[in-house]
Amino acid sequence: MWKRFDPSRPLAVIVGAVVAGMLAGFVASVLLSFTAEPVIDQAIALEEARHAAEPHAPGAPEEPEVVARGDQKGVGRFAAYSFGGGAYGVLFGITFLALRRRDGKTSPADAFRRSLLAGAFMAGAFTVMPFLKYPPNPPAVGDPATISERQWKYLALIFLSVVVFALAARLSSHLRDRGWTGDERLIAVALAIAVPLGIVLAALPPYHDPIEAPANLVWRFRIASLGGNLLLWSVLTMTFGAVAVRRERELSGAVAGMPAGEAVLRPATTT
């Protein structure tokens, strides 16, 4: 399997990124078992207490439980994070491929740099930007009547962030072709990301739902969620990047016929 992973082949990149993403989702889910689940349980207890306090029609049937609570916090969340991580992996892999330099002037370390960039873009668009504008809420928060309105706002924010990152990458490659090097290009691209993202954050309308759950509970949930999602992106980026740069070194060494002295620096693969 190791031998078949070539960071310059699209199929290998996508498959590798899906594996890394599923692993990352699993790892993040393990963390969330400890950080988020106690908070979610509290929020659900609050929600149920609120329901119980409402006047019930006599003899009204209880809401049937479709999925047991234990499954939601166990296998359900692990499945959500593994599938979600795998899907994020596909998008990460496409970003990694799209960030290839057009001029072919590249070194093996470029594979790691592109992984970091792809991971940063993805985490920015899918986790950090939504967190800044529409932070995640625990159960017991949210009015079902406004759900579709909140969904389109949330999707619009992610979509606009992706567009900004894609245009910034375009701009970067364009400026490089025009001979901009080093700091100038970095500053121009950083501005081309930060300013439009700021405008997006300011321009999109906020959620209007009142939050009646205790602020402390809500924020503990939000921090736990942010930690889990950032861990997912870190693990995905680091495992994929580390493997990609190693394989890139091996393969470019094999292709270019590196001097033997160079090869000694890398331990031979044992597989």
């Binding site: 988020a36 979610i40 969340r77 979600g84």
Partner: peptide, 9 residues
């Protein structure tokens, strides 16, 4: 739980 934690409304 996963959906809440991903931050989706």
């Amino acid at each position: 739980d996963g959906r809440h934690l991903f931050g989706v409304p």
